[in-house]
């Protein structure tokens, strides 16, 4: 899921300074799961706004804020409350914020910073394991992603900063290449070490990404 967190309150105070009445939008998917933009966070944010002497005209937690059409439909059910507001505050990831900003006429204020595509280690602990490079190498690296979990995204083995199997940027982190090596060994195969991996084709990751299912796949 997309891991996001509330922006610093001082920054939000500044961003909201020109508005008195606000409508709040949360997201029931990722932003709820990482406790940044679910029912509970919307409620807390509303209390904070009231303490800032703002008026909240209404709120909604959209099923998936990243779904542009569904977000628009859900907001239409709150037409009047949105109309009464000076601006719409969205507690969702950057995708969700843009679904909303592309469907309402009002100014939209994003309340969250979006950080990464994260796995849940345990409740409240998120880790980035894939950075969506578009050309997956996991089958050769024993299911451990060097593009993401090696701090330098190296493809041919560890850098000179590896110390006792740990990463140069953080002694708490295990070096991705050490993990790949150990797992490949335990599987008794060479995997990625059998060849020199050529430079990555970053054209798969050209921004902005676009993808359409073919007619038969829809």
């Amino acid at each position: 899921m997309i891991i996001s967190e509330l922006k610093p309150l001082e920054e939000l105070q500044q961003a909201l300074s020109e508005f008195d009445k606000l409508f709040l939008v949360g997201c029931a998917a990722c932003a709820t799961a990482c406790k940044a933009g679910g029912e509970e966070e919307i409620f807390k944010f509303q209390e904070w706004l009231v303490a800032q002497e703002k008026e909240v005209t209404g709120s909604v937690v959209i099923d998936e804020a990243c779904h542009i059409m569904r977000a628009a439909r859900d907001l239409r059910h709150h037409k009047n409350a949105v109309r009464d507001a000076d601006a719409v505050v969205v507690l969702a990831c950057g995708s969700g914020i843009q679904s909303i900003s592309s469907t309402v006429e009002k100014r939209v204020v994003g309340g969250l910073n979006s950080m990464f595509l994260g796995n849940v280690r345990r409740f409240g602990h998120y880790e980035e394991m894939c950075s969506l490079c578009g050309d997956c190498i996991l089958n050769e690296t024993a299911g451990i992603c060097p593009v993401t979990t090696c701090a330098k995204g190296l493809l041919n083995g560890p850098c000179g900063g590896m110390e006792d199997g740990h990463c140069e940027i953080d002694a708490e982190l295990e070096c991705a290449w050490c993990l790949i090596y150990e797992r490949l060994q335990s599987q008794d195969r060479q995997g990625v070490f059998a060849r020199r991996v050529p430079p990555k084709n970053w054209s798969h990751r050209r921004k902005p990404g676009r993808y359409r299912l073919k007619d038969g796949e829809r």
Binding site: K152, L155, N156, V197, P198
Partner: peptide, 12 residues
């Protein structure tokens, strides 16, 4: 940080 290539690829 860039790291578009690694040292092996740079040698190649």
């Amino acid at each position: 940080p860039v790291f578009d290539l690694d040292s092996v690829q740079l040698l190649d």
